[in-house]
Design a protein around this nucleic acid. Structure first.
Length: 825
RNA sequence: GCGGGCGUAGCCGAAUUGGUAUAGGCGCCGGAUUUAGGAUCCGGUGGGGAAACCCAAUGGAGGUUCGAGUCCUCUCGCCCGCACCA
């Protein structure tokens, strides 16, 4: 006997008629709300990188959230307490630029977009705990930015210094080193100018070693870890002091150099100072080359990074009137200034060993400087005049005084360390470690950000705003127009904001007018999710302790050395402050692939996007989600065909329609044994797929099961149908709920337990055994999975088809129960 | 140049990690049903053959192995990240 469960059943799948209804019901039932104190053994903190609130949402965005939501829903069904929050990275340049362009306030623009994003996310059925939503431009959020900033300042981790910094002329603000991609501004692509400015920095370099060493246990894509390792760029070597003698004076100047190859010290044939090096200027000062040197420096400075790259091969140099003394053998060598030596790395000065460093080699050949070989590779004798490139591999030290005959392996430091020890004993040098990473420049000359809570007083200097006065609120009035010679924030135009009393002496003083980089906001928002309404502290340590660290983080690769390093840094600082007791914020990181359309990056503003709202309107939210999870492995890139919108209809909507047709009507009869086996096997493989985030293959398995269902004579047995719906629920939450409730279930499918499977049932299924002769398949049998080796061999040898390829008895028989027999003749 | 990754059907992609290559889907071809459909259902879809059956193929060339998409060597092509880091 069959039941038709839908008295008013619509024959067609029309998701628009029921999807929205469930959003409200789920929220009313509170099924996605996370407790403050979960069972620590059964908790999962799942989150995606929170979005910048923009006014549109396309299928590229949908992928990120669909992946995380499928994970969150799966784990919830697996019995975990799941926290899956959402928030908005609501400060920042785009809001300000858009506001200027449209002549509205950034807050208005932002609020509108937040409202749009929130309703889009609800419509897509993402299982967020909306009670934890946060918006970073909310004073109740950014006051804790200010609190953290002041705490860091107390610990000496936030400080101001004057230095050459990158200033983007289009965005009209300074940039952190991390925000230059290939030498240009990461947002707008313009070439930055170098300006000498006083800026706020965070001392992230104090944490370089921990950032490097503590990443080891993270379940992150190797490429991200590698990018971070390279970004931090720790290199071990020695610092060696050279005596530099300008020709026009008797005095000598001590100039330290950093080298990773102190074993090549005896091969140093010249000495190079960066053009910006103050000692280079000192040497030139008052000599006849002073003018020409200055124009050389100007010429080098004029070059941007991009130009320096294009001018590859020519190494500009300037011979300075000085000699340097090699501390290992007392030999004099000429002193040069050259563009390839950077002031920003090491000490800004190098010993040049052209025989063993390619850059030094090129410079030496171009400027006629000597090349002395001091490392001979095995089985070869290099001659300085003849070689055509530097040799940097392992070998035996020669012409190296006490170290002649020492074998060195630069890769492993073998031999090199002996030289460092010797230098240290002799007082000529010491071990040294250098980092590529620089301190994080966090001040920005923009309005729409967190005001830096500092007051500048003529009497007292730099005075922190007292904690009880936080937050320092952004004023509503803003005048972006005025721009002086000095890079200044629009806040500087607002006298009501700027003028303040010094908290220490009470006299008239001026507020800091720069705001914080928005990466400051995102460095700790995951902690705030644990305690979003706390007005006494940034977060209650016990709440963070019960949910953090984040178990699964989902996002793109673009933040490899920005957000993902900054957040790690903050957590380590909080650990030192005793606010939490774990070293790393994100245990597992999943990078979704990029989504493009017709080979070009999806972008609504460029008119090259598949709009999520349009997909929902035409096919429903489930189709959007199912398509994006099915079209390719979630970590792989996917390029939509030109008719991408139709493709979603052909693939996802038509399959869900089929699901609808096949499962609208179910039978109360129990499933036949053969169907039970198929269902159990499906549970097994889909579970394995979900564990590995293999959503595309999970959907493929579910498609196979639907194909099986449709081969049945009558309606699908209810138990089988419900198992299927549970497996599909994390991916397509609406259709599964609609059908599930249609069967008469009174509570949500999303609160159901994930189906289990019976392995013994799966073992009853016959499998195909193949018989190969010399590796070629000649016969197949359906056999029980429990078949023995002897049975397999017997079966194989009795086959006529096999005998036809056999000339006598096989030399060797390989069996792999229960799948394969290979006969070797 | 350095680091990471990829190359399987016309297209997106599977392949228990060394064991039936091409699951699932799109597209295409054929059939059924329908007043009609760009709907639905069924079947086919590397090549040859009526069929039994035979042969080829995972960018290319070698190698290890009873057996290689998977491991090794070389090579070609593409994508991403970093750019003189001493």
């Amino acid at each position: 006997m069959n039941w038709r469960y839908f008295s008013t059943m619509k024959p067609r799948y029309e998701p628009q008629t029921f999807e929205e209804k469930w959003v409200g019901e789920w929220e009313a039932a509170g099924i996605y709300q996370a407790a403050d104190k979960p069972d620590p053994a059964r908790k999962r903190f799942v989150m995606e990188m929170y979005p910048y609130p923009s006014g549109d949402l396309h299928m590229g965005h949908v992928e990120n959230y669909s992946i995380a939501d499928a994970m969150a829903r799966y784990w919830r069904m697996r019995g975990f307490e799941v926290m899956h929050p959402m928030g908005y990275d609501a400060f920042g340049l785009p809001a300000e630029n858009a506001a200027i362009k449209r002549n509205i306030h950034p807050r208005e623009w932002t609020d509108r977009n937040v409202e749009f994003m929130r309703s889009s996310f609800r419509r897509l059925g993402f299982s967020y705990d909306w009670n934890r939503e946060l918006i970073t431009c909310d004073p109740e959020y950014y006051r804790w930015n200010q609190w953290i900033f002041l705490k860091m300042r107390e610990r000496g981790l936030a400080y101001r210094k004057t230095s050459p910094v990158n200033w983007c002329p289009v965005d009209k603000t300074v940039l952190a080193k991390e925000q230059l991609s290939t030498g240009v501004c990461w947002r707008c692509g313009s070439e930055p100018e170098i300006r000498e400015l006083t800026q706020w920095f965070l001392k992230i370099t104090d944490y370089s070693d921990r950032l490097l060493d503590e990443m080891e246990g993270l379940r992150w894509p190797e490429s991200i870890l590698n990018q971070q390792r390279h970004w931090i760029g720790r290199s071990r070597g020695a610092e060696v002091v050279f005596q530099v003698k300008p020709k026009n004076t008797e005095e000598t100047i001590e100039v330290p150099v950093f080298t990773t190859r102190p074993d090549t010290l005896w091969g140093a044939t010249f000495f190079v100072l960066a053009p910006e090096h103050p000692i280079a200027e000192q040497i030139a000062a008052g000599t006849e080359i002073e003018e020409s040197f200055r124009s050389f420096v100007d010429e080098v400075k004029k070059q941007t990074q991009v130009e320096r790259e294009s001018g590859e091969g020519t190494r500009k140099g300037f011979a300075l009137p000085a000699v340097a003394i090699n501390p290992v053998n007392g030999e004099e060598m000429p002193v040069w200034s050259a563009d390839y030596v950077l002031m920003g790395y090491g000490t800004g000065a190098i010993m040049a060993v052209p025989a063993h460093d390619q850059r030094d080699f090129e410079f030496a050949r171009q400027h006629g400087l000597p090349v002395t070989v001091v490392i001979q590779p095995e089985g070869e004798t290099l001659v300085g005049e003849d070689i055509t490139e530097a040799y940097s591999g392992p070998g035996v030290m020669v012409n190296s005084g006490p170290f002649d005959g020492t074998v060195v392996f630069p890769e492993t430091q073998d031999g090199v360390d002996r030289v460092i020890d010797w230098l240290t004993e002799e007082g000529r040098g010491k071990p040294s470690i250098n980092y590529r990473q620089r301190d994080w420049l966090v001040s920005r000359q923009r309005y729409w950000g967190t005001p830096i809570p500092v007051i500048h007083c003529d009497q007292c200097g730099e005075v922190p705003v007292p904690y009880e006065d936080l937050p320092v609120r952004l004023p509503d009035e803003v005048d972006y127009s005025v721009e002086g010679e000095e890079a200044a924030s629009p806040l500087a135009n607002n006298p009501d904001f700027v003028n303040a009393d010094c908290p220490q002496c009470g006299r008239a003083a001026k507020r800091e007018t720069d705001t914080l980089d928005t990466f400051f906001d995102s460095s700790w928002y995951f902690l705030r999710y644990c305690d979003p309404a706390n007005d006494q502290e940034a977060f209650a340590p016990e709440k963070v302790a019960s949910w953090c660290p984040v178990d699964q983080y989902v996002g793109g690769t673009e933040h490899a050395v920005m957000h993902l390093i900054y957040a790690r840094f903050f957590v380590k600082v909080f650990q030192d402050m005793g606010l939490l007791d774990f070293p790393e914020p994100f245990l597992s990181l999943f990078n979704q692939g990029s989504v493009s359309l017709g080979g070009a990056e999806m972008s609504s503003s460029k008119g090259n996007a598949i709009d999520a709202a349009e997909v929902i309107e035409r096919y429903g939210a489930d189709s959007a989600r199912t398509f994006i999870l099915f079209c390719s492995p979630p970590a792989a890139d996917y390029d939509f065909p030109a008719d991408g919108m139709d493709e979603i209809g052909r693939v996802a909507h038509s399959w869900l329609s089929r699901v609808w047709r096949v499962l609208s009507e179910v039978s109360q009869e129990s499933a036949a044994a053969s169907l039970e086996v198929v269902v159990n096997r499906t549970v097994k493989v889909v579970t394995a797929d979900m564990e590995e985030s293999g959503f595309n293959t999970a959907i493929a398995r579910l498609m196979e099961l639907v194909n099986e269902f449709s081969k049945l004579d009558g309606p699908v047995p209810r138990s089988a149908a419900e198992t299927f719906l549970k497996l599909l629920a994390p991916i397509a939450p609406f259709i599964t709920e609609e059908l599930w409730r249609g069967y008469g279930n009174e509570t949500s499918i999303h609160s159901e337990a994930w189906p289990s499977y019976d392995e013994t049932l799966i073992q009853q299924e016959s499998v195909t055994m193949v018989v190969q002769v010399n590796g070629k398949v000649r016969e197949r049998f359906q056999v029980a999975p429990t078949i023995t080796t002897a049975e397999m061999e017997a079966l194989a040898l009795q086959s006529e088809r096999v005998k036809a390829h056999l000339d006598g008895s096989p030399k060797k028989i390989i069996t792999v129960p229960p799948r394969l027999v290979n006969l070797v003749v």
